[in-house]
Amino acid sequence: MFTGSEPAVHFPTHLGSTVHNDRYTVLRKLGEGVTATTWLMRDESISDSKYVAAKILTAEATLDIDKGVVRKLEFLKEIAKNAEECDDEGFEHLPILSDSFTVSSSTLFSTSVSALRRSAPTKSLPVYMVRNILYMVLQALDALHSLDIIHTDVKLDNILFSNTLYSLDNEMENFLAAYPAETDGDSPKSQPIPHRWTYKTNAFQAELMTVALVDLGHAPKVILWSDIGPKIDIWAIRCLTFELLVGHWLFDPVDAQPDWGVEDDHLVKMMELTGQKFPDAMLAHAKERDKYFDKSGNLIRIPDLVPVKLENAMANYKIPGLTENDIGLAADFIRDCLKFDYKERASAKELIEHPFLKNKVFSC
Rank of each mutant, 00 (worst) to 15 (best):
H195M: 10
V308P: 10
L138V: 14
S124W: 11
L250F: 04
N202E: 07
F11C: 08
F11L: 05
S119P: 00
I334G: 12
H145M: 04
S167N: 09
F293G: 08
W235C: 10
L97E: 06
K123M: 14
A331R: 02
N202I: 02
A330C: 06
G229T: 01
V113H: 03
Y51F: 12
D265P: 00
G328Q: 05
P279N: 04
G261T: 01
L73F: 02
S162F: 07
A284V: 01
F91P: 06
L125Q: 15
A315C: 04
K295S: 12
Y292T: 08
T35N: 10
Q205Y: 05
E311M: 06
L125E: 15
D255V: 08
H266D: 06
T198Y: 09
E207K: 11
A120R: 02
G16R: 09
V69E: 12
M136A: 00
L322I: 13
H266M: 08
S167A: 14
I352K: 12
M1D: 12
T152G: 08
G185S: 07
P194L: 03
D66P: 00
L40H: 13
I223P: 00
N132L: 14
P12L: 09
G297I: 01
H93F: 10
K221I: 11
A115R: 14
S114N: 13
A256Q: 11
L329I: 02
I334F: 05
S104D: 10
H145N: 06
A178E: 06
L357T: 04
G275H: 07
P307E: 14
K81R: 15
P126D: 08
R335M: 15
A140N: 07
G90R: 05
S124Y: 10
A178K: 03
L250W: 01
N163P: 01
M314Q: 08
M282R: 06
G16L: 07
G16K: 08
H145Q: 03
R118G: 03
A256N: 11
V306F: 04
L245Y: 06
K55Q: 11
F161K: 08
E344K: 10
T37H: 03
L250N: 02
G229N: 07
S5F: 00
H266N: 06
D233I: 05
L125T: 11
D252Y: 11
Q139M: 13
Y51Q: 05
L208K: 15
T62F: 12
S5E: 00
T201S: 04
C86S: 11
Y199T: 07
L165Y: 03
A59L: 05
D66W: 01
L15V: 13
S119I: 00
K277F: 06
